[in-house]
Nucleic acid binder design. Structure first.
Lengths: 137, 137
DNA sequence: CCGAACACCGTATGGTGTTCGGTATGACGG
DNA sequence: CCGTCATACCGAACACCATACGGTGTTCGG
């Protein structure tokens, strides 16, 4: 599949892609163009080693309470260290994935989360070792 | 920063990148080449809309027990629906991020996780809504 | 059987990645 | 102060690539 090949290495030329799936370069280009158009391919980007940039501490935070209607989501988005934010079913309202240079900065982020409207508590899970973080298919 | 620009859109030409940071195209190319060489840039890839590919259910699973030395990590890596696997400090040993087409397939994945050596239990958190999933910096 | 819609191919061309020789800058030791 | 060495940059050269386009084969409803 074209998507799989591009996930592995998006610098591949359309000619190579075509050869891999039995098409001409032009046809492969056309297919990829449509995948972008439909939003299946959101964008082409680089995968960065966060640890190499000094973000060595990864943690997940369960947030209790909070009025998650309106713009409290925007408040979370404004905190740059938060990589993901999900509304969840289970023992909390919201789950955050946070990456910081150290535990010191994690503490700062938690303090900011606490100031979001209605938040009553947080439970933090610190990642000790990551087996893998990958993209599917 | 070159990294930030490439994260936004890795199809930008080196000439444009150079102009953005006050360098020639050749020099920008050289800098990016070194970033790849040092492993700061792991690869260039495409960002795929998982929902468009039919993976609409995202969930996090806390795994209790397990003998996480040796190749039980490899057993997890062999399950394609698992997107991330971390060893954690907190109320479980391992945290998984799983994406499946539906809850039916999630059940199948959980059954396979249970068969990993020493696993005594799992607690599953289903994502109801994702505010954002982004890449830092 | 007709015509439209679609996916593909081959080609042309302007832009791009990649390489290379030459030059400026700064660090270091004598 | 001077030579040397390493590093980072520039500008140009060249092969390769993305992109656009006209033409062709295939499918399918009417």
């Amino acid at each position: 599949m074209l998507i799989g090949l591009l996930q592995e290495d998006a610098t591949r030329s359309y000619a190579m892609l075509g050869k891999a799936v039995g098409l001409s370069g032009g046809a492969a280009h056309e297919r990829v163009r449509k995948l972008r158009e439909r939003g299946v391919i959101r964008r082409t980007t680089i995968e960065v080693d966060q640890a190499a940039l000094g973000h060595t501490v990864t943690s997940y935070v369960m947030v209790d309470g909070g009025s998650w209607m309106g713009d409290s989501a925007a408040e979370l988005a404004a905190i740059p260290e938060i990589e993901e934010a999900h509304v969840i079913a289970g023992p909390a309202s919201v789950l955050l994935k946070i990456r910081t240079p150290g535990t010191r900065e994690l503490q700062d982020v938690l303090r900011r989360v606490f100031q979001v409207d209605g938040v009553t508590g947080t439970r933090t899970i610190v990642v000790l070792e990551t087996f893998f973080e990958r993209t599917l298919k």
